[in-house]
Simulated assay, not measured.
Amino acid sequence: MVAGGDIGALENMIICPTARGFMLARDPISLSTFLWSSQTRLKIELPPLGLDVDDDLLIQCNCLLSDKPTAPGCVVLLAQPDAPLIWFCHVGDSQWEKYEYDIGTMALPDWDPPEEKVVICPITACRGKFYFNSNTTSLDVIDFCGGLAAPVFGSIAVEDTIGECHAKVFLVESRDQLYMVRLLGVNASEPYHGATVHRMDFSKRQWCAVDDLGGCTFLLSIYEFGASFSGDGRCGLRQDCVYFPDRHRKTLQVFNVKDGSTELQKLDEAPAVSDRAFWVLPSNL
């Protein structure tokens, strides 16, 4: 929840960020829901989002926009991080739709039960579609097919150009291109020792390694959130770098894609609630 300060319509709202700079906001009492741009103060009304998505869950969800929210047919999608559920609506709809999907199960040999359903994570929107759960040989996709009410799930076979390794994966859209960022690490108790970035070549159906981000900056955050910033030197962010805050160790890691260097910055003064922090980006209409 955001409280106080010069935050306009976000005061006392439960919010969830999007990679397009808009924030999804819901009044915890009236349940009125809208998209809000902190840059332009533009407010776009959405249908009320019910309490089957409670406050804590809403903060953790991935919220994505298929296009600029002022564009005809823009889809707003919420992906729950711990269950095979999504909620979606088109801007201008009268209600949200809840959709339970089944994209397979994963083995958990030391758990009871020994398997659970695969969930959508990570996910990003690119060119009007939603791409998720990328691996070395496939890329899954959700398409609303020109405004149809129900989502269509599919998968794209991808040529294996990466190889397996222990990595945390993020998907990022930047300038209408789809990227996959992998933070490399041996175990969860240590900081990541590096990062690789690949761009999807849809014509060849393969991930292509890149050694720059076209001057942009990639901002990663908890719950597999990834966004691209213009990287023009504003806000002290460096071009062609990937930023990742580690809430557990109160650190900020910066990975330079051009020279492969890694920098670890201590955030000892970060508040106790910093595990709910996220990037606030400018919205571009």
Rank of each mutant, 00 (worst) to 15 (best):
R199Q: 09
V210S: 06
S155T: 14
P47T: 13
V197C: 05
F34W: 06
D176L: 15
A9F: 11
V91G: 06
L77K: 06
S155P: 02
P114F: 03
L65P: 05
P271Q: 09
I222F: 09
S174I: 05
G233F: 09
Q177L: 13
K43Y: 04
E173F: 00
Y101N: 03
L85F: 15
D82S: 12
L57C: 13
G4L: 15
C126Q: 02
K250D: 05
C16D: 09
G260K: 01
L213S: 03
N62P: 00
E11H: 10
V181R: 03
C74K: 02
G154Q: 06
S134W: 00
Q39F: 13
L31S: 05
D27M: 00
D140K: 13
V152H: 09
Q60M: 09
A25P: 00
F170E: 01
E11N: 09
D82L: 11
R127S: 10
G5K: 00
G4Y: 12
R175E: 11
T136F: 12
G233E: 01
C89A: 09
L10K: 08
A19N: 14
L10G: 03
G236A: 04
S32R: 07
W36N: 09
E224G: 04
L139F: 06
D112R: 12
Q206C: 10
V273G: 05
S38D: 11
F88V: 00
K204S: 15
A157L: 12
I86R: 01
C165Y: 12
A19I: 05
G128H: 02
A149N: 13
P28E: 02
E97M: 03
Q80L: 07
P28K: 07
F255D: 03
C61E: 03
E190K: 10
P113V: 15
G185W: 06
V158G: 01
P109H: 00
A149H: 14
